[in-house]
Design a protein around this nucleic acid. Structure first.
Length: 484
RNA sequence: GGCCCGUUGGUCAAGAGGUUAAGACUCCAGAUUUUCAUUCUGGCAUCAUGGGUUCGAUUCCCGUACGGGUCACCA
């Protein structure tokens, strides 16, 4: 077989839906898996929808994800141009070629007539379809209309009988009756191609071998096939992928707030995690591993793993995967990214950021959670003594008060307030008392933070807060518990 | 409504005509742990439904229900 050439052909809307991104990913993986080429083509024929800077959004997203294209508008290639609006010249010729072959025809019907027709059909409860009024116009009539400059479109002449079968790599063979296929418009009144027509011609002229696209095109695939047949061209392999859903009945939509790559980025997810998660939404790996770098994805990707049914987007799992990536970061890298987030709520200059990051990393799922996680450092929040009660730790208000009273003098006596010294001193206490670690350490953690979850345990928090602040917070804890 | 596609646990999902029906996330229980967290161990499903084929079907076929898609001079 010749070289595999796949293409991602987005419209520049300024918005990269993750379903689209996932299509791009699969398209990319399919090409790379087979040592082929991944091509970017911008489909910008809809001028009304054109948004400034939208193409840059596509470039940036793809590049950030590592989905680098081998041919495209910015880098060129042998089959350009790669922006659809720049390829307009050729479509009319191709459409006329089809007319000559008897596979398409001129249609001079006015918009009014078509609307009327649709209304009548709708009223009698039959699905709207063009009635092929112009399909059998005489040569003379056509010539006359053309000469008079009557506006026209060119429509595809669907066979009147029989059925059309096309093959999809995921769904297998799909057959439909030709009788339900509409004589769709190929070339519009303004001489521009319709999307479906442009797609076929572009894919063929760019020598695309595999087309990965959303499931919404499954219904129009037979018409595509007929077009390829009409031209005498070899159709590409089709790979239709299902939608990403918000729930069982709704597609993940823009208004849901996490439908685009940018939305997810804004929520603090890492690019690698997003890509890894969407890979899994609709595709299943052969083995048990679910964590993949882009290179590993290329290695593991296989069309047979693509799912036939829609997948519901699960933020919880995305978060878990993100947590995995956050924790796998080298500590220097984690620190570099985390410090700005820490500084949002923790302005104190004397905190040991290295220590803080070290304890924060295993507890971080999202970088955007960090400000809230460290907000207690600058100022002890108001908290309820309920926090001191923990069944598992076997702590109560009484045992906690007792513990804090014992901790206080010990920490007061420490001249060298380092993590190591604090640890040794407190563990000596624990041993003397003959209690579980938690009985001493749990109340300390609560007193120092006023929070249920904290980055680090009591010892670490004490070291981070420093002697003076730690002691004052412990005294505050004793005061609160004594007041009960 | 016509046509097309789908349906395995709360979610993503593997899987094969006869299996203890993988794995991941969540949840629950327990163990470690410088307490919470992390980490580790364990627990939670008869595969939408009715019928058929078969010695045997969740796996093959047909119907039903439910869900999605599509029926533009939009892409």
């Amino acid at each position: 077989m010749s070289e595999v050439r796949t293409r991602f052909a987005p419209s520049p809307t300024g918005y990269m839906h993750i379903g689209n991104l996932r299509t791009a990913l699969y398209t990319y993986l399919l090409a790379k898996k087979n040592g082929g080429k991944f091509i970017l083509r911008i489909e910008d024929t809809d001028r009304e929808r054109y948004v400034d800077g939208a193409v840059d959004v596509i470039y940036k997203t793809l590049r950030d994800c590592g989905l680098n294209w081998d041919e495209g508008p910015d880098i060129g290639g042998d089959y350009g141009p790669y922006v659809q609006s720049e390829r307009m010249g050729m479509f009319k010729d191709y459409a006329e070629e089809l007319v000559k072959k008897g596979k398409a025809y001129y249609c001079f019907c006015t918009k009014e007539r078509l609307e009327e027709l649709a209304a009548v059909q709708k009223a009698s409860n039959i699905s709207p379809m063009y009635d092929r009024h112009c399909r059998n116009l005489s040569k003379e009539e056509i010539e006359k209309n053309l000469a008079e400059g009557v506006p026209y479109v060119i429509r595809q002449a669907i066979p009147e009988e029989g059925s059309t079968t096309f093959h999809d790599e995921i769904y297998g063979d799909i057959t439909v009756e030709n009788s339900i296929l509409d004589d769709q418009i190929l070339l519009k009144t303004d001489g521009m191609p319709t999307y479906n027509f442009a797609n076929v011609v572009d894919d063929h002229t760019m020598k695309i071998t595999h087309v990965v696209r959303g499931n919404e095109y499954l219904s129009s695939a037979p018409k595509y096939n007929l077009l390829y047949e009409a031209f005498g061209w070899e159709p590409p392999m089709y790979i239709h992928v299902e939608h990403i859903m918000k729930d069982a009945q709704h597609k993940l939509a823009k208004r849901d707030g996490d439908a685009s790559f940018q939305d997810l980025l804004d929520k603090g997810y890492m690019t690698e995690a997003i890509l890894n998660y969407i890979l899994l939404l609709g595709w299943a790996p052969k083995g048990e591993n679910e964590i993949f770098s882009l290179d590993e994805m290329v290695e593991a990707f296989d069309l047979s793993g693509i799912s036939k049914s829609p997948a519901i987007f699960d933020p919880q799992k995305l978060k878990a995967i993100n947590a995995h990536y956050v924790r796998a970061l080298p500590i220097e890298k984690f620190t570099e990214i985390a410090v700005p987030y820490i500084r949002e709520t923790c302005k104190r200059e004397d905190v040991d950021l290295d220590l803080l990051c070290r304890v924060l990393q295993p507890r971080a799922e999202l970088f955007t959670d960090i400000p809230e996680q460290v907000d207690f450092i600058d100022k002890l929040p108001e908290y309820s003594t309920e926090l001191y009660v923990n069944k598992k730790m076997k702590t109560t208000a009484e045992t906690s008060l007792d513990a804090l009273k014992k901790i206080l003098p010990i920490l007061e006596g420490l001249s060298d307030f380092t993590q190591e010294k604090i640890h040794d001193a407190l563990f000596a206490l624990i041993e003397r008392e003959g209690v579980k670690n938690g009985v001493i350490l749990f109340p300390l953690r609560v007193a120092l933070s006023g929070k249920q979850f904290t980055p680090g345990g009591g010892v670490e928090l004490a070291a981070i807060l420093g002697k003076e602040d730690s002691l004052s917070r412990i005294r505050k804890g004793i005061e609160l518990l004594s007041a009960q």
